[in-house]
């Protein structure tokens, strides 16, 4: 059952990704991207990362994609149907080859490893004890509290930078 679901989500994600690249209008690209992100949230659930799946839907497919949509609407690009694909058969062929190599590498990397290593058992135990959010939170607020605080500073800098850049009369 999990395997069938995984292949379903994988097909949706790849289809969405191809749609992002091939779609003519920016709005179409964006909607394909939301599809791909939702499908990837599904694969996160199948890999037992429930909190990340929720964050993926809320932050990525929700907030960030709406930001992109605002910008597309604001710049009035919704009817910008001009074809802007560069390259041709050669580009597709070269990326097919690179993609094949990357896929084979990933498969080798995965098949030397295990179906479920020691990390999986540790995560399952932590999730049984603290819940899906608590398993991440206990690590985040103890061992990794300094990177977490630095992330806060990064977000503040990003807010100020975005305001300064997008303001009229710079």
């Amino acid at each position: 059952m999990a395997t069938i679901l995984f292949y379903l989500f994988a097909g949706l994600a790849i289809g969405g990704a191809i749609g992002v690249v091939m779609s003519k209008s920016p709005i179409g690209s964006l909607l394909f991207m939301v599809t791909a992100l939702g499908a990837m949230a599904g694969t996160f659930v199948l890999l037992e990362a429930h909190f990340l799946a929720a964050i993926q839907i809320i932050v990525y497919a929700g907030a960030i994609m709406v930001l992109f949509l605002f910008v597309i609407m604001l710049l009035n690009l919704g009817h910008d149907y001009q074809k802007d694909l560069k390259g041709g058969a050669f580009a597709v062929l070269s990326f097919g080859v690179i993609g094949g190599i990357a896929g084979l590498m990933a498969q080798q990397l995965g098949s030397t490893g295990l179906e479920d290593g020691p990390g999986g058992a540790a995560i399952d135990a932590a999730m049984a004890e603290h819940g899906a959010v608590g398993a991440i939170a206990t690590e985040l607020y103890t061992t990794y509290v300094v990177p977490f605080e630095i992330t806060g500073i990064l977000l503040l800098v990003a807010i100020v930078g975005a305001l300064v850049l997008a303001k009229r009369e710079v």
Partner: peptide
């Protein structure tokens, strides 16, 4: 499942690079 996820990740990364 892990192997398939890694392959899916490689494919998506290549499609993204292609798009850029």
């Amino acid at each position: 499942m892990i192997t398939e996820a890694l392959v899916l990740s490689a494919i998506l990364f290549v499609i993204g690079t292609f798009g850029v």
